[in-house]
Write a protein that binds this DNA or RNA. Sequence first.
DNA 1: TCTGGGGTCCTAGGACCC
DNA 2: TCTGGGGTCCTAGGACCC
Length: 416
Amino acid sequence: MTEKLIFHLDMDQFFAAVELLHQPHLRGQPVIVGGNPYGRGIVTTASYEARRFGVRSGMASSEAFRLCPQAVFVRPDHSKYCEISRQIFQLLREFTDRVEPVSVDEAYLDVSDSVWREPSVEALAMKIKQRIRDQEGLTATIGAGPNRQVAKVASGMNKPDGFTYIPASRVAEVYRDMAVGDLCGVGPSTEKILETLGVRTIGQLAAFPADILRRRLGKWGDELVRMAQGQGREEVQTLDERPQEKSMGHESTFSEDISDPLLLLGRLHLLSERVSRRLRTAGLAGYVVAVKIRYKGFETVLHGRKLQSCIQHETDLYPVAERLFHESYREGRPVRLVGVHVSALIPTSHLIQQELFVIERDATDLSTACDGIKDRFGESAIGFASGVFFSASRHRPNSRRTVFYNPFRFNPLKPL
DNA sequence: TCTGGGGTCCTAGGACCC
DNA sequence: TCTGGGGTCCTAGGACCC
């Protein structure tokens, strides 16, 4: 059996790059795609110019603004990114039919069968990068290796617009002095645990006794050692092969903390509607409902329950969410976020036995009618009265337009 | 400084049954 | 009256990823 060759492709500063394509006059300036710097948003993507000021994705927008007050803040426009992403994935399938999307801007490609048509691994990677540049005007970084984990580490080594190939024979040498945090799956918490064991580099991790690690990290300990030794999954799953979703949910953070149960329930109602609409679109129903409440101070509680029969419509989902909310909400405490999640999903086509899936005829008719209106006029065109309060205030007429929050240009939120 | 929203996977404790 | 041990299911929470 010949060795596999996996590519990990990562678009460079994708959201920011797309914004720069649409607004070329912003080139060379620090651009931050993310939430309102005066509100509770976070940075989704920072351009490389903004990163020079220490701005990182995941950081609070307010913090990013403090670090880089001259930055141009742009509200994310996901429909724009999805469209370009779709075109890129289509292009990738010209090189191999084994493409696995990880997110809008990331994919694994199994190029084991196509690389032989090219003079080298690098030549194939350059060809793919060039195609993306020609067609979309965007740059990508590619990492190559014998499996997904190695390819992923490789793509992280040389960004942006880079290419790195780590053949199996060179993994140990390349990994030896790299930080354990460079492995995908090792976050701050695992890194801290490893540090207490005296493990800082991937080389040290590869030689660490697996049984000690297993005691501290469970199964994950074994997996980590294997990853550090350069082993990993080789298979790439195309969209058709991808397993069905396991859970679906929506949550939303208030611009200010709220402790009025009626307002909290109003938002829960709106979220229940959105979740059930997605369930219907996907042809799924779920047995487990959970409500999430994040209080002021970030303390988060999740309260859920498995139901006798599975549900799909908001007329079934919301009452359950409401009950769960009343069971767990600590009266009077300010809340920053609420969420509704449905899991233990099953395709409705599998529900042949009538008793397992009792749908009220009225609920179906109502949902179908609402879905039709939303399809034609948009998501906020119709909703339950208790949810509309937020719906109306959130969806301002110009909310689809890119908004500059930068106070030196235009600040719709706070006078200087 | 103060932390979005969409997910997946794993663990641990308690209930319950045999 | 006190007490096992294994297995499964449910629930809550945490770590991590993009």
